[in-house]
Amino acid sequence: MEKRVFFEHRLTPYLLVAAQLAITLIFFIWPAAQAFYQSTITQDAFGLSTTFVGLANFERLFSDSLYLHSIEITLVFSALVAASSLSIALLLAAMADRVIRGSSVYKTLLIWPYALAPAISGVLWLLLFNPTIGIIAYALRQVGYSWNNFLSGTDAMILIVAAATWKQVSYNFLFFLAGLQFIPRSLIEAAAIDGASPFKRFWTIVFPLLSPTTFFLVVVNLVYAFFDTFGLVHTTTAGGPAHATEILVYKVYRDGFVGLDVGGSAAQSVVLMAIVVLLTAIQFRYVERKVVY
């Protein structure tokens, strides 16, 4: 869709886009191009000389067991966060769609965590799970599980999954609720008249009709778990213990800023860019087309 009527000025449009374009080129395109360039070089220990090494950084990356481990950790983490926050949100949204009395109060009570930064959510859960003073750690001790997120990799992973999920439920809830309210009532009424129980109606009518929303949310949640959880990991586990929670965005920061491995970090950046491009492409290709039932 294009406008049929427009202004004929020659210079004005360039002035209008100048600021956006300048920032895009200087802070987005140029650094991204540099990441590509840096991923093909190595520097000596003092950063004085650089050598072109082709794809050697990538070869090194993919033969590094720590990096492969990081990919695995990221996949586990993202899958757990997406699955748990989507199912909890769907349950809450289905219930909220049913109630009439107090629905706006419930909505308010369920959406506020969206406002929190992942780093803040991490600190809240860090206190709850603190091995000495945390309430949840205490409760777990009472039932015979000795919780320690500083020593056990599994415990640390559960901690970041819980914190990431807790924050994301609100977002998913809002979209599921909007999706549910979009489903024509007549369909559900027709099924009810035919004697389908609420449970059956949900799985055979409502859930399939929600698939565009669900699909969109899966992609958004994966992006969230992949890229937005840096602060959460940094404030809580710092990738530890023993790399057990070192997800990809944390590793690229650590290798680049703390390890000062320019080539390795740049190669990781390029891999991450490929992941974003892939996820964005999936989102645009399938969400635009809508899911066919």
């Binding site: 374009l21 895009t24 990441a35 840096q38 800023f257 974003v276 964005t280």
Partner: peptide, 27 residues
């Protein structure tokens, strides 16, 4: 407005969607 490079500029802006800070930290 209609001006040369309109589409190019549009796509350049679009690309920023795929470049969160997290993926290009060091540069």
């Amino acid at each position: 407005f209609r001006f040369p490079f309109r589409k190019t500029i549009f796509w350049l802006i679009f690309i920023t969607l795929m470049l969160p800070v997290e993926v290009r930290i060091l540069p």
